[in-house]
């Protein structure tokens, strides 16, 4: 439980620092191109990794279960520009249905 409170404190301080660094310390100066290039791509790389781990990960192995069907629905709904609430509720409904029907 201590780990969770440490996580919360670190994220609160770290996120504030990331938001404030540009406006307070850099005062409008840009960061080196190399740094900005990586910063701009980090979210894409990490989000994709999170999608994989949360869809197929089961401890240290990969598995195919009802989450994959929910993820498939989410992807289809998002490519049809469905609102976020529809995406999330629909994905849960599809996964719940799969959980009830599949062995």
């Amino acid at each position: 439980m201590t780990g969770i409170w440490i996580t919360i404190a670190a994220l609160a301080l770290g996120t504030a620092a990331l938001k404030l660094l540009g406006p307070l310390l850099l005062g409008g100066r840009a960061l080196p191109d190399g740094v900005m290039g990586v910063v701009g791509l980090l979210a894409s790389a990490l989000l994709a990794a999170l999608v994989i781990v949360e869809t197929f990960g089961q401890g240290r192995s990969l598995t195919l279960d009802d989450r994959a069907l929910g993820a498939l629905f989410a992807t289809a709904a998002l490519s049809r520009k469905a609102p976020l609430t529809v995406v999330v509720v629909g994905a849960a409904a599809v996964a719940a249905l799969a959980h009830a029907i599949l062995p």
Binding site: D66, R67, G70, A71, F73, A74, L78, V88, A92
Partner: peptide, 9 residues
Amino acid sequence: ALFPAFFIA
């Protein structure tokens, strides 16, 4: 399925 759905979004 909420985790994958949210990260995909």
